[in-house]
Design a protein around this nucleic acid. Structure first.
Lengths: 339, 339
DNA sequence: TTGAAAGCGATACCAA
DNA sequence: TTGGTATCGCTTTCAA
């Protein structure tokens, strides 16, 4: 023992019993006398014994109680909430979250998967559906419950819970076209890999082309999709394309930032310009206006994913794919219905 | 082998060398021929071998690469960002964050500490300075780097980085009194244990009493300090104490919610009522008004804490306590200076 | 440059 | 009700 840690053997010795007996007492496995129990517990307290779970898992050739959870970023409050939902649920069942921030980079995800798998986790929850070839190999080989979240995917590696981002973008495009818009703008951020936001943009673009509209994009590289980003994207977009009639933002925070830019620039919303967000974040309903947006049950995604992993761990049957859907919120930041 | 995992022994056998040689190659420890290296690596790839780090740590009687990080909640974006700062830094140095959400409950913290310590973490970062007796015992006994963050504490268990919340509350009280306010309101949420927000309130109350002002509180139990909470706290506070002249909120998000309540209730800010937040969150500067607030370097806290743990792990000297301070932001949501 | 043996801290299994 | 012994996958140590 290099660390001056107390081991089970020392507890057992102090209590005058064998390691096995002490082990049984600690696991409350039965097969010992009350007298023995008392002696062992007393020594545990006295010595301040803390078990080494590494050894436990290792001895039993079992998995740890870790669940690896990867999310792209925490600065984005949507993912923070998904994570909160997951950790709450996992914690309640004695599992620990091992965090992985992939920053939307596949290589980072791959590296994280390798590391976290080496700790013998009980399960994995991964944001996104696009993984490197080697990641897929490792995940397949791991043979543990795996949930891919965020992007719904009817053919997941194992399990999946999320929504169809393409469809949600399409729905917004269709909705705005229906309100009479023809010249559209999109404002968002970009990342190295295909992600859900790109799918929304693709859906949005498709709807616009189906409605014979026209799309201008403004994408800021390597930035988080927050208030400031929305503000500056809007400034740039309108500077180069002043004829844009409505802007669809990557999320509500960006949209609120965009709204504020318009306000400061003396543009009326929706008179001069329409604003639409995505996510239906709390901020959107505590403004003087009601932001046009897409409501997404993100807390539910976190909860469900944790439940699915737990069910698998405990051998319960679960539906392996769940589409949680979305709901378009008309709001007051776009032209009203004409009919 | 109950799991059909590939072990180092199998790789070694396939490569026609001993376990030890294979082990040396994988750790790039030297002491093997190039030919051997090639053979071993080839088998690792072919078999898809992933090391079992549990065994590694266990065998070497070392600590894992985990760092336990406890935060009270993720719904609160300030803590989400602190966590992001921590995980970024830790990840860059090959460490993994094991998350613990304590929800401001000491017992939950204690339970988490026990669990996470059993995984032999390399270090710990814990939010808050108030711990149960047993927690303190376990932390002392663990003998690993520990940083208490958020609340500055000149006499930490090991290391500490944060700010003096009492002082920041006092500063705001003093500032508002200086602007002529006499009837103060406070709006926040409450938790089971002493936390930083209570310290701010205490400081605020002290400043008010020093200025012979009068304080009314409105605290919503068991709720997260967000936009809605701010909205409803304000509604309730003003319903019962319509003579309050200015309200200090637990954070900016609550303050923005409170502002919106006032706007909808037809109250002008700062004409009819003053609004002051805390934290200087992004939302506060993307509103039509500039929120009076207290700027806090929360990203820096996360970063610094990770750096401190890492330094200790690697045996570098570090300053054990860091007060990151705060800065009062006057804003436009309170009466202007009279002079 | 290589390998055999011991051991890390716990549990499984079998015997008493 | 108890305890001895083998074992998990890997590294350390020592010898070849």
């Amino acid at each position: 023992m290099k660390n001056n840690k107390i081991s089970l053997a020392e507890v057992a010795k102090a209590a005058g019993v064998s390691k096995m007996t002490a082990s049984r007492v600690l696991r409350d496995e039965g097969g010992f006398s009350e007298q023995t129990r008392v002696k062992v517990i007393a020594e545990v307290e006295r010595l301040g014994y803390l078990p080494n779970r590494l050894a436990t898992v290792f001895a039993g050739d079992k998995r740890s109680t870790f669940v690896g959870v990867s999310i792209p970023e925490l600065g984005n409050e949507i993912f923070a909430q998904v994570l909160e939902g997951i950790d709450r649920k996992l914690g309640a069942f004695g599992h620990q979250t091992v965090l992985g921030m992939t920053e939307h980079v596949r290589d980072q995800e791959e590296k994280w998967i390798e590391t976290v798998l080496s700790w013998q986790p009980a399960g994995l929850i991964i944001t996104g559906r696009s993984h490197s070839q080697r990641s897929i190999q490792m995940l397949r080989g791991a043979g543990i419950p795996l949930v891919e979240i965020w992007d719904f995917n009817s053919n997941p590696l194992d399990m999946c819970v999320g929504l169809n981002h393409f469809d949600s973008g399409y729905a917004m495009g269709q909705f705005l076209a229906g309100r009479g818009y023809r010249k559209f703008g999109y404002a968002g951020t970009s990342h190295d890999t295909a992600n859900a936001a790109s799918a929304r943009l693709a859906g949005f673009a498709k709807a616009i082309s189906d409605a014979s509209g026209q799309l201008e994009k403004q994408i800021l590289l390597r930035d988080v999709p927050g208030f400031y980003t929305g503000y500056y994207c809007t400034e740039q977009l309108l500077a180069s394309h002043s004829d844009v009639e409505v802007i669809f933002y990557q999320n509500d925070n960006m949209a609120v930032g965009g709204y504020e830019y318009c306000a400061r620039a003396g543009l009326s919303v929706p008179g001069d310009i329409g604003i639409a967000g995505w996510g239906d974040l709390p901020i959107s309903s505590i403004q003087p206006y009601r932001l046009t947006s897409v409501a997404v049950p993100h807390l539910r995604i976190g909860q469900l994913s944790a439940e699915m992993v737990l069910a698998r761990i405990h051998g319960t049957r679960v539906q392996p794919t769940r589409d949680v859907g979305f709901r378009l919120i008309p709001g007051t930041t776009v032209w009203p219905a004409t009919s």
